[in-house]
Design a protein around this nucleic acid. Structure first.
Lengths: 246, 246
DNA sequence: CGAGCCGTTGAGGGGATTCAAGCTCAGTGG
DNA sequence: CCACTGAGCTTGAATCCCCTCAACGGCTCG
């Protein structure tokens, strides 16, 4: 089994250093975020103590098993949700990017199911349970918005099984690239995980991950691989994907 | 990649043949089911058109991509949630047993994310969206109950990744047995899937699944394997699990 | 500049797949 | 009645993909 967890990781000194509490309306991700569907009027007359939480790369937001008083929306960056097996192997079970909600179990007063770690410098909005409840009282549309988030998370987890965890390693890698595409930066460059992280997502060893990245670079699917950034030839990706999937 | 889908499966002529509509209170699974937490008083004065849906083994309840007007609670039996890859390989992503809620996406008017198929003769309660909405109006505790279901499904999907889809095939098989244990019948016998189904759950071939079952029988982890029923030596299972997990 | 992390590549071994044969059992029809 | 069939399961042999172990280079940082 691949993926010994051997990285000693800096932890967020919880409560993480918060930027000044802000109101929601000026937020750049509001349209996609939890409160995006709600009327401005609702939000403006509800007192919200929503804080901005910055996270360094590889910094942990919360641990599996902890209970916390807040859920989070990813404002920028990328978060991985992972757990560790009894044998000490890490497995990444989901990724959450801009606009996605994580740690929703806190709203039910249940312990976090996974550890949440920033893949890169990341900023989140902290949504305390109390704030959510207050908004829910003011606007009955919130429960539905929350359920839609839950369903989205469920669908992502299930497709992680069918895409990322199924078939030969090459297919899994290609499916992972497909999934990283939407999180590309403004120059269209996707974030390439460390080889070890790729391994923890695909359940392969870091050596196999490295060989796959090299091979895909040679084939031109990946271009200008510099460190953790790369451009993906989307057409070629689709092409080799159907070939690998047969 | 394992698991060609080659079984021509009988489909439920939808709408499936329904037993007479019943009220919830006398239901044997109500305590664990969606309406279990709600007051009897609430349920008795809300008109519910909840129907009992029987399903034969390998009969499909709904297909991926379909939209439907109802979610379902498993009253007895076992349901598998599966999808098929572009290459035509099946992958089972979740199991739902007695008391569990499936097809919740219908409550949001979203298409079903997976196909739901009965593993054995199964009975479900059909919960139309309209009924859920009426109950929600009468009892404000329902949204929370629903969210708890969503969270449970999400946690099951994520642990399916970490348990069933991670590590060597032997470990996956043992984890699968662990997960079948709670669904054992009244004589403590677990349902053993077909070898092909095991393959579709663990992403291995049916031959490998067969070898694993044979090996575990020889080792005494599985006993009295007759057809699709077997007893599991729980102590020995735990024992070989820690051994395999190292 | 040495230490540690990250990535790459090679060689060898092992676990899972592939291909194949043969078995049991239920259903079917001559 | 019994061959005939097809589905499901098992087992063997050969192949291949991925893991393991190992060595090495680039890079950052103390």
């Amino acid at each position: 089994m691949p993926g010994e967890v051997h990285v000693m990781r800096r932890m967020a000194s919880r409560p993480a250093s918060l930027a000044a509490a802000t109101h929601c309306p000026p937020c750049e991700v509001r349209p996609q975020a939890l409160f995006g569907a709600l009327a401005d009027a609702t939000l403006s007359h509800v007192r919200l103590d929503i804080a901005s939480v910055p996270l360094a790369a590889d910094e942990s937001l919360y641990l599996r098993g902890e209970t916390g008083p807040a859920a989070y929306t990813v404002r920028s960056g990328l978060v991985r949700l992972e757990r560790v097996t009894e044998a000490g192997h890490r497995r990444i079970v989901r990724l959450a990017g801009r606009g996605e909600l994580i740690g929703q179990e806190a709203l039910l007063e249940r312990p976090f199911a996974d550890e949440a770690v920033a893949c890169m410098p990341t900023v989140l909005c902290r949504l305390p349970r109390s704030a959510i409840e207050r908004v829910a009282q003011a606007d009955p549309a919130l429960p539905r918005a929350l359920m839609l988030r839950w369903q989205a998370a469920l669908e992502q987890a299930e497709s992680w099984i069918a895409d990322i965890s199924t078939g030969p390693s090459r297919r899994r890698m290609l499916k992972l690239l497909e999934r990283l595409l939407p999180h590309a930066d403004d120059q269209g460059r996707v974030w390439l995980p460390r080889r070890q992280e790729i391994g923890d997502m695909l359940d392969i060893t870091l050596e196999t991950a490295s060989r796959l990245v090299s091979q895909l670079s040679r084939e031109g699917v990946l271009a200008s691989v510099d460190g953790r950034r790369a451009t993906v030839d989307v057409a070629r990706l689709a092409q080799v994907l159907v070939a690998a999937d047969r």
